[in-house]
Amino acid sequence: MLKQKIAITGFASVSALGEHEPDIWQKYLSNQSNIIAVDFDKQEYLVVRFPNDVKENLARFTLANSKYKNLDSSVIAAMYTAEKAIAQTGWKNTAEIGVNIGSSRGATHLFEKYHEDFLINKTAQTLVSPTTTLGNIATWVAHHIKSESIAISHSITCSTSLQAIANAAAWLQSGMSTQFVVGGSEAPLTAFTLAQMRALKIYAQKSTSIYPCQALNFSKKYNSMVLGEGAATACLELGEKENALAYITGIGYATESLEHNTSISTNGICFQKAMRMALKGFNPANVDAIVMHAPGTIKGDLAEYEAVKSVFGNTIPFLTSNKWKIGHTFGASGILSLELALLMIRNNTYIKVPYIQSTIPNRDIKNVLINAVGFGGNAVSILISKH
């Protein structure tokens, strides 16, 4: 448990579910997956894309400032969601807002475009370096919201955005900052990035199922990860707040020794340690649900489930995931899982994975645990509570 709970006072996202909370919630209530088949450089991949209205709004946002036209779409989405999240808070002095927003892959589209141009012309364009460095996500967000405070970017692969929350919590509890914007943004849908995932043999193949990504199906015989694009931003501040959406009450993290570049242990040791740290001083029986990382891979899903069984024993909370619906958004996935947790708490409704047999608990949703892990075995667990 944290020394002092942290209020989430603003939240905004863009994903396959849209960008407006009522629409996002209605789509969570639906059993429909947003996975589609798309050709990338003459190869078909299952992916999850932004809906057209989100694309149009992001395009308008980009055109509204001439300086933004040379930025990667991951940076645009981060600025867009940060502006919307801050608008909910009532914060007046944006100069003092700390920023910690990261990405697993960074400026994917832009970097590949510039590199292709270099191979053809043998020269690099002027803005290649400043617009493709990972740090430009946080610095451009700080520029857009007119912050003069700390601006941090990082890549901790798929746990990036939950790592940002852990970092912001340290700044807030130390007194070095009073307001923080955190999040993750990812635009990974390129032929090269998709080919990398396929080369790892973890990517979903063409499927006749209406649910190609089988996240949380612990008996599946094939890997079924699917990539999606998305971004989300949360506003954090210490203590009780009248406008709090929920509170962060526990944070845990751990890194385990590697046997392989992409692996974690069979029993999910890093998950076990992260969850136990997040729940320190908190009765695990009071956790109502866990939003699992569960990317849809055989070993990854099972390792996390084994970790949950180790931590919770015979009182396993309700388990859910959103990757079957919105895909794996890499560095943004953790904070988009946080969004699902927030919505379940606020609507007091459990969201089931439609192809999994599960029983809806007969209890209100007050406490939800969110997990994320990335390449390198770096797990983060965040406990959020209604009060």
Results as ranks from 00 to 15, higher is better:
residue 200 L to M: 15
residue 94 T to V: 05
residue 97 I to Y: 04
residue 168 A to L: 02
residue 77 A to L: 07
residue 97 I to M: 08
residue 118 F to G: 05
residue 185 S to T: 09
residue 175 G to K: 02
residue 159 S to N: 03
residue 147 S to V: 07
residue 163 Q to A: 14
residue 201 K to S: 12
residue 117 D to L: 10
residue 132 T to A: 01
residue 71 L to Q: 02
residue 90 G to E: 07
residue 150 I to W: 14
residue 104 S to P: 07
residue 157 T to C: 14
residue 90 G to K: 04
residue 118 F to T: 03
residue 87 A to N: 12
residue 158 C to E: 10
residue 137 I to G: 00
residue 160 T to W: 04
residue 134 L to A: 11
residue 146 K to G: 02
residue 70 N to H: 12
residue 61 F to K: 05
residue 192 F to S: 01
residue 196 Q to E: 13
residue 154 H to K: 13
residue 199 A to T: 11
residue 163 Q to Y: 06
residue 119 L to P: 07
residue 183 G to H: 03
residue 150 I to C: 09
residue 132 T to P: 02
residue 149 S to M: 05
residue 184 G to H: 01
residue 201 K to A: 09
residue 67 K to W: 00
residue 111 F to L: 15
residue 147 S to K: 02
residue 181 V to Y: 06
residue 188 P to R: 01
residue 90 G to V: 00
residue 153 S to V: 10
residue 138 A to E: 03
residue 195 A to E: 11
residue 192 F to Y: 10
residue 163 Q to R: 06
residue 67 K to A: 14
residue 123 T to N: 08
residue 150 I to K: 12
residue 112 E to M: 07
residue 99 V to T: 05
residue 184 G to I: 06
residue 131 T to R: 14
residue 187 A to W: 06
residue 93 N to C: 02
residue 180 F to A: 12
residue 102 G to C: 06
residue 137 I to M: 04
residue 165 I to N: 08
residue 118 F to E: 09
residue 172 L to R: 04
residue 75 V to S: 00
residue 135 G to Y: 10
residue 199 A to R: 15
residue 125 Q to D: 13
residue 135 G to R: 07
residue 89 T to R: 02
residue 177 S to V: 10
residue 106 G to M: 06
residue 84 K to E: 15
residue 75 V to D: 00
residue 114 Y to H: 15
residue 181 V to E: 01
residue 71 L to H: 05
residue 94 T to S: 11
residue 99 V to W: 01
residue 130 P to A: 11
residue 91 W to E: 07
residue 117 D to W: 02
residue 200 L to C: 09
residue 81 T to D: 02
residue 166 A to H: 14
residue 82 A to Q: 07
residue 194 L to Y: 03
residue 77 A to K: 05
residue 161 S to K: 10
residue 100 N to K: 09
residue 198 R to G: 04
residue 91 W to M: 00
residue 98 G to Q: 04
